[in-house]
Structure formats: structure tokens, C-alpha cells
Amino acid sequence: MAHDTHDIHRSRAEFEFIKRKRATEMRGQLTSFAMMIFLTLIAFTVVAADFSNYLIVPIILLLAAIQVVLQLYNFMHMSNKGHGMMAFFMFSGIFVAFTIVLTMVTIVWW
């Protein structure tokens, strides 16, 4: 079972296909890496530009959320096949946590 090893034989076409797929994935990773650096720059700029805290905090939180999504999908392979259930559980967890926090700050403690 789990410890059985299999020799993998690939045809030429399969090999080409996998190569192309990996190249696309690599491109995706580089793009998101560039975007993440850019987002980080924005974050530093808003702080350096000394905007009002009420602007800085939501912007940084938003950027952080985008970063997490980019990280998960492009670097932690959530965009690959077979991760649907994991995504479902993560989003359920986020949803549950979010509703609880939202409830607390809106209707419980306003």
C-alpha cells in the first residue's frame, strides 16, 4: 500500500505536457511574487506617507488578505487539482470565525 513504490514511465507527449504545465505554474509563481513585493511596497508607502490611521489600518488589512490568498493559491498549491475539500474546510473555518467576530463587534458589544 502506502510504501509500495512504482516506476513511472511517461510517454513523450506526457512529458511535454508536464513540462508545459510546470512552466505555466512557474510563471504564475513569479508573477505573484512580483505582486507580493509590490503590495508590500504599497503597505510601506502608506505608512511612510503618514496617512490617517483610519486609512492605513484597513488598507494594510486588505493587502494582508490578498497576500494570504496569493500565498495559498500560488505557493501552497491550492490552485492544483484535488484541493477542493481543503479549500472548502478553510473557507468554512474562515466563515465561522468571521461571523463570530462580526457578531461580537456589531450586535453583541455595540
Partner: peptide, 20 residues
Amino acid sequence: FMVWAHHMFTVGLGPTANAV
């Protein structure tokens, strides 16, 4: 996960929370 405060109606969370 969205109903826990019904154990706490009498705590005094206010009418909005209780209604929701």
C-alpha cells in the same frame, strides 16, 4: 455555529442580538 447566544438571552445582550 450561529446560534450560541441563545444560551445567553438573559445575560443582557440587547434586543438586536437576542432577535438575531
